[in-house]
Amino acid sequence: MGFDKGKGQMVGIYTALIGVLYTVLGVIEIFGWLGVEILPRLAGLFFVVNDAFNGFVLLVIGLVYLKGVGSVMSGEREGLSYVSVGALMSTVLLTLYVANIISNGLGLVLGFEDWLGWTVWDDFRPGLILWVLAIPAVLVALKKEWRE
């Protein structure tokens, strides 16, 4: 069963862009952890912290998005599964970062020594900005009409 091909191509192109961004930033994180700096300007723009594990998760999310691109473009609804799970994982990662920011903010408010120099920028991670860019994918995933 499929859906409108025009819509599918639009969603597919956008998913490909998001998938590539997640994948590239994941690779940058992993290589950064290994001491190899690649695309430093992009890394700086997305607050890359050179954490291999974080990079692995970004890479997996990117691959989930990318695996769905072909089938979404050709109007197969199965492809939307990948967009939906990619959006779900992006959102769980965002929730994790937000919980961390709130928790560290509490440390600052309570005046604990280790948190005195903390700023919200310390906890900025690529997953935060990428989620904002992935909002259209999240909205696609939430649309019930795809499942009819």
């Binding site: 997996v60 939307l80 599964s81 799970v85 795809w146 499942r147």
Partner: peptide, 27 residues
Amino acid sequence: WSSSDMLDKVFLDKWLGIPVFLSFMWM
């Protein structure tokens, strides 16, 4: 095409299933 069908398509994927599981464990 239920939400369960959509999620299972990826969570039970032969290649992505385990990396997705490891990602959730890291989170």
